[in-house]
Amino acid sequence: MSIVRTNDQGKAQVLGNIAKWIVLIFFFTFTFIPLLWLLISSFKTNLELQLKPFAMPKIWQFTNYANAVKISGLPRLFLNSIMISTVSTGLTMIVTSMAGFVFSRERFPFRQGLLNLILAGVLVPIIALMAPYFRLTNALGIYDSIWALIFTYTAINIPISTFLLYGFMRTLPRELEEAAIMDGTGFVGRYWRIILPLTKPGMVTAGTFVFLFSWNEFIYAMLLTSRPAVRTLQLGIRFFTSQFFTDYTSMFAAIVLTMLPTIIIYIVLHEQIIKGMTSGALKG
């Protein structure tokens, strides 16, 4: 009887493994095929892409990559995007972690009203703010500089990031702070030494959101800059579209090139990144 049960368990384990691998292969394929398609398409002519989008290229068009670098000036735009996205993410994290701390841990008059006012910003479509931001950056004398984008992206992301960090900080046990107060820790110390380290997973989530927004944003990058020296990658990729024609294959080559540094950084640092994302989660 026990032998039969062992055989049944073995079969169940094998079936479970097969099911697991089917699911894994399905999602791997679902994720990987579009990237592979992008890579292969970046070596085609536009006509090949339009007529046989899933066929291999007849002649591999390496010139698409030369076009990508030559036309859009990718290296400079890449540096600008890194700078703008990183600094605006950092500023947003500083501002909203403080806001989240105060709103979630302190009691003061109009607290709920102020919080609601900030969080209501999540509901405002960013396109509705184009004219005010344009006027503001001109008035501040930062139009056509990376600061116009850094401050705008920071401001735009404050509501959603505050919402995420406020929600996260609210779940932290109050006893931790009380113990720190007993030890003589002040207001700043509670924020800096107690709450902030415990909020790391929440900040990774909010920071990722802000970084991706800043990295992919196009409308304000176009509106608030005019010189190529201060522009971002998203504008560079649009150099392959014109009023009546899009050079998709060169654009794909540009997209592949812009993905490469990120992939290389992830391959080199993936252990540290995963460690950083999960370490805080185990503490709370």
Partner: peptide, 19 residues
Amino acid sequence: EPNPDTDGYRDKINTQLSS
């Protein structure tokens, strides 16, 4: 001043004009 996207360009000009 290069503005590579036609629709984006028109949004930008309209914003500038309205400002």
